[in-house]
Amino acid sequence: MPFYDYECAECGVFTALRPMAASAEPCDCPDCGTSAPRVILRTPNFALMEPGMRAAHATNERSTVSPKSTQAGHGPGCSCCSAKPSSRTLTRPDGSKAFPTARPWMVSH
C-alpha cells in the first residue's frame, strides 16, 4: 500500500498508508478525527526506483514532449525525401548487366 498526503483544516498535513482503491476518498485525521481531503504536495520518489524503471520513465517523458523525428510530417520510409538506395546492378552500354558487388562465381540472369 502506498502513502498519501492529506490536509486537515485544524491540524495540518499528515501522511497515511492506504490502499490505492481508497486514495481519492477523504481520510480521518489521526489527531482530531475530522475528515481530511487528499492533497498532492510532492512528486513520486524516483530515487528509490530501480534504474531500469527510472530509465523507462525518463524515455516515456521525453517521447511525449519531443518525439524522435528526422523531419516533421514524414514517417519512416518516406519516399519523397529519403535517399534512393543505390542499385547493385551495373548496366553496360550494350545493355548487358553486371553485378560488381556480387560473388564472382555467381552467374547473372
Rank of each mutant, 00 (worst) to 15 (best):
M20E: 15
H109P: 15
A47T: 13
E10I: 03
S63I: 08
M20W: 06
G73M: 04
Q71K: 12
C29Y: 01
A102Y: 08
E61C: 07
C80T: 14
C29S: 02
S86M: 12
S63F: 05
T15F: 01
C27W: 00
S108M: 07
M106E: 14
I40K: 10
P76R: 12
M20S: 09
G95I: 03
R18C: 07
C81V: 13
C81D: 05
A72L: 12
C78Y: 06
S23L: 07
S79L: 14
S63K: 11
E10A: 13
H74M: 10
P44C: 03
C29D: 06
S86D: 14
A24P: 00
A47Y: 08
S66T: 14
R103V: 06
T91V: 15
C80S: 14
A102C: 11
C27F: 02
L17N: 13
R103S: 14
P19E: 13
S86N: 10
P93S: 10
F14S: 01
R103G: 03
M1G: 09
A36S: 15
G52V: 05
E61L: 11
R92N: 15
D31W: 02
V65F: 02
N60F: 08
P76L: 12
P85W: 03
T15R: 11
Y4L: 09
V65W: 01
A24Q: 11
V107N: 07
F3E: 13
R54V: 10
E61T: 05
P93A: 12
M106S: 08
C78F: 05
A102T: 05
A36D: 02
D31S: 06
T59E: 13
V13S: 06
C11P: 00
R38F: 01
P51H: 06
